[in-house]
Design a protein around this nucleic acid. Structure first.
Length: 734
RNA sequence: GGCGAGGUAGCUCAGUUGGUUAGAGCAUCGGAUUCAUAACCCGAAGGUCGGGAGUUCAAAUCUCCUCCUCGCUACCA
């Protein structure tokens, strides 16, 4: 081939390297939405596909996280067993990922025997080396069931908002983070009985011992190459003071402590590893399983210093993957992560995504609506991958809108990328007889050289952006080179040459040569586009390979930037459209559907709240009326009517108001957690009901002498309890 | 309240160590073209860089104050 343009391999130094890539283990208690996808799985998949195209030694592990209390909780909700829950969601989520082209080397599960053994051995190793501490504490215990109660198994009244169905770890109504001790009238959800306090011993990971190591490793060594938000978050945690963290807990769903654990006794029969401890070890057990399946050795991936371990997670997982798990790995003798490119959150149409509120698009929803043959099939999976990457929350929270989705598809994938491919193929069939035309050296001009230079530059740029985890920008460069292809073609106008360079109804030889050169380069660019787009849109790359009749091996990155990928004279297939337009009606339908889903979810939440309220009346098990008291007990409480005469915010507290209440006989200072419900100036002069003989208590340094009674409505808003007409301050309430 | 990350054209984002009229893509408008999924190409318009003060010959970029969003955290009898 007489080709004047030098063909420089853009990747001269062949990098070999061993990579272990992980994506956060999805919790197997339900479906996962596109925010999860954009946060961890999609960027991980793009990175892995790129690494594999570079022929590097890489394993991509993920799997279901199947322990922890939320699994049996979900089982209670669905009226089934914990095992049934994980058996239900594991395959569904795995299939959803596969349908969207997320290609794990292994999608394992933490309920597997191999994982149990691995996690137990990990625990034993740390314990034997003296890296864990044992402490005895008091925890809630259900006597009738003879079991300690996990936070989630305790319900009671939320001290913040008064919700009667708050859990021991969190109130779902007001979102407050709680501990079981904070609940008013705690009740075991297993028996309905009030739990007692009982001593129990637990193993702790003393993170506080490792502060110096973490400071050096993260804040110094990785200050530059990790994302600022990740380093900042870690700094915040470390500066806040690291505390020992319980590794074990009393629960019957999880990985049992090894029988050989020194100090374990009969009372510890129900001790399991805390889910946060066993879950990340799931990456290791998944690697082991993958290695066993492929006759490989798993150890280098977790022990060899030249292995690059990269964790892809959402920002809610930063602390586990940057602080806790690295401490575990270091103590256990493993390698540390090279990077944790955590993404921020993705909102949806102006609001936070929330499965429980129905304000989300589950991967399954998208697959059902779009990824089917009559709607576009696999290429629609690529469209989602495209838009989610384009708006990936790499540096700050971002927002998914259906309108944006439509525009990204129509004006970039269809109009720029798809159209470039299509017009190239159509012209090649019209003007070059369906074959790759030769490049005529004598006619190669500056425009041609520039295009070739741009292709090579794009290869280098995309590569370096991918290496730096800048997927959004890398994808932009891919579209941009397609844009340059369009421009090149417009400059060359081969269709005009075909019309004008004609003598006696015959195209002149030079005219044909000009056309040949243009389309030769356009086709070589098309081949490059297949390579470039492959990590992002694998299905589209596959389609392109078919059209060009090349094997997937062409997609290897060493071919990026080459302009001899398609052989002269090779006949290519008829073009098929890569993407289709998305119409307004489809977008409107999705918007309506989202609103309807949110509406029905709200209704469901309200219904279940009402049901719970109803159940409170007749079924003690869920939220019983407090134990009966006699009149004398009630008489101990001295309730009085008072008037708020002054109110101000308590400094350094978001929820507290400091009130002065005139009780007739005296004016008292009372601190109340109502600052988020009332403006101080708006409540002056209001009459309220006060518990006046409650023991004083200091809050934020201010002594509170009493308690204001509040009623809470169905939306969680607080209202004062006061007499229907104003009466004298100090009046008793009976 | 403390800490962390953000706040730059309608939208999504770039802006390295402070330096000429603040950039890109999409959307919008105008023009040209017709090979291509009524697509493509060229051009224009559009921002007091959250607000205020300061340092400087010069600030989106440095300092201080302040407002807003998100996350973590404290407060909740």
């Amino acid at each position: 081939m007489d080709n004047q343009i030098p063909d420089i391999n853009t990747t001269p130094t062949k990098k070999i390297g061993r990579y272990l890539i992980t994506a956060a283990l999805p919790y197997a208690n339900g479906l996962k939405h596109i925010g999860h996808l954009a946060g961890a799985y999609l960027p991980a998949d793009i990175y892995v596909r790129y690494l594999k195209a570079q022929k590097r030694d890489v394993v991509f592990v993920c799997g279901s996280d199947e322990h922890g209390t939320a699994i049996p909780i979900q089982a209670m909700k669905e009226g089934t067993t914990a095992q049934a829950i994980i058996d239900k969601y594991h395959p569904i989520v795995a299939q959803n990922f596969a349908d969207l082209g997320i290609e794990f080397d292994i999608y394992h599960r933490t309920s597997s025997p191999l994982h149990h053994e691995t996690a137990q051995a990990f625990f034993t190793e740390l314990n034997n080396k003296g890296h864990l501490e044992v402490k005895t504490t008091e925890q809630y215990f259900d006597e009738s069931k003879a079991t300690f109660l996990a936070d989630r198994y305790i319900k009671g009244t939320c001290p913040v908002c008064g919700n009667a169905d708050a859990y021991g770890d969190q109130c779902e109504k007001c979102g407050s983070t709680l501990s079981p001790d904070m609940l008013i009238n705690p009740v075991s959800t297993l028996s309905g009985n009030a739990p007692i306090k009982k001593e129990t011993q637990h193993w702790y990971l003393p993170l506080n011992r490792h502060e110096a190591f973490l400071r050096e490793w993260i804040l110094t060594q990785h200050k530059q190459d990790w994302r600022t938000s990740v380093v900042g978050q870690c700094k915040s945690w470390i500066d806040g003071g690291l505390q020992p963290r319980a590794v074990t807990r009393d629960l019957d769903w999880g990985i049992k402590l090894p029988d050989s654990t020194p100090g374990i006794n009969a009372n510890d029969q129900q001790k399991v590893l805390y889910v946060w401890f066993d879950a990340p070890i799931g990456y290791i057990s998944a690697t082991k399983q993958w290695a066993a399946d492929h006759q490989k050795d798993w150890k280098p991936y977790w022990y060899a210093p030249d292995t690059k371990l990269v964790h892809f997670v959402g920002k809610d997982n930063i602390v586990f993957h940057c602080i806790i798990f690295p401490v575990m790995l270091q103590l256990h003798g493993n390698i540390l992560p090279e990077n944790v490119p955590a993404n921020e959150f993705m909102n949806l149409e102006g609001d936070k995504m929330s499965t429980s509120k129905g304000w989300s698009i589950e991967m399954e929803d998208y697959i059902n609506d779009w990824v089917k043959p009559e709607n576009g099939g696999e290429s629609m999976a690529d469209v989602l991958r495209y838009y989610l990457t384009q708006i990936a929350p790499e540096t700050k929270d971002s927002e998914f809108t259906w309108k944006g989705f439509q525009e990204a598809n129509n004006s970039e994938l269809v109009n720029i990328f798809g159209n470039y491919i299509n017009r190239t193929f159509v012209l090649m069939h019209k003007l070059c007889k369906g074959k790759v035309p030769p490049l005529h050296a004598t006619l190669v001009d500056a425009t041609d050289h520039q295009l070739v230079a741009e292709i090579k530059a794009a290869a280098i740029k995309i590569e370096s952006l991918l290496e730096a985890y800048k997927f959004r920008e890398a994808l932009f460069e891919v579209i941009d080179i397609a844009r340059k292809g369009n421009k090149y073609m417009q400059d060359k106008q081969p269709w005009m040459v075909a019309k004008n360079a004609v003598i006696d109804g015959q195209l002149t030889p030079e005219g044909q040569q000009q056309i040949d050169n243009c389309l030769h380069l356009c086709l070589q660019l098309a081949a490059n586009l297949a390579i470039f787009i492959h990590p992002f849109l694998p299905f589209t790359a596959g389609k392109l390979c078919k059209m060009m009749k090349v094997v997937p091996k062409m997609l290897e990155w060493e071919n990026a930037g080459r302009i001899d990928l398609l052989k002269v004279g090779y006949s290519l297939r008829e073009p098929q459209l890569l993407f289709r337009k998305i119409e307004n009606e489809e977008i409107n339908y999705q918007l309506e559907k989202l609103k309807a889903k949110a509406q029905s979810a709200t209704t469901t939440i309200m219904e279940s709240t009402q049901e719970a309220a109803q159940a409170t009346q007749d079924e003690v098990a869920i939220a019983p009326v407090s134990p009966e008291i006699v009149f004398d007990d009630f008489a101990k409480i001295d309730l009085r009517i008072g008037t708020i005469v002054a109110a101000q915010k308590v400094p350094k507290a978001d929820k507290l108001l400091q009130l002065s209440v005139d009780l007739g006989f005296e004016t008292r200072t009372i601190v109340s957690g109502i600052a988020q419900h009332f403006a101080p100036e708006a409540i002056i002069g209001k009459q309220v009901t006060v518990v006046v003989n409650l023991a004083p208590r200091k809050m934020r340094g201010i002594e509170s002498n009493g308690m204001i009674l509040m009623a809470e409505d169905s939306e969680g808003k607080l209202h004062f309890v006061h007499p229907s007409t104003a009466i004298n301050n100090g009046a008793g309430v009976k």
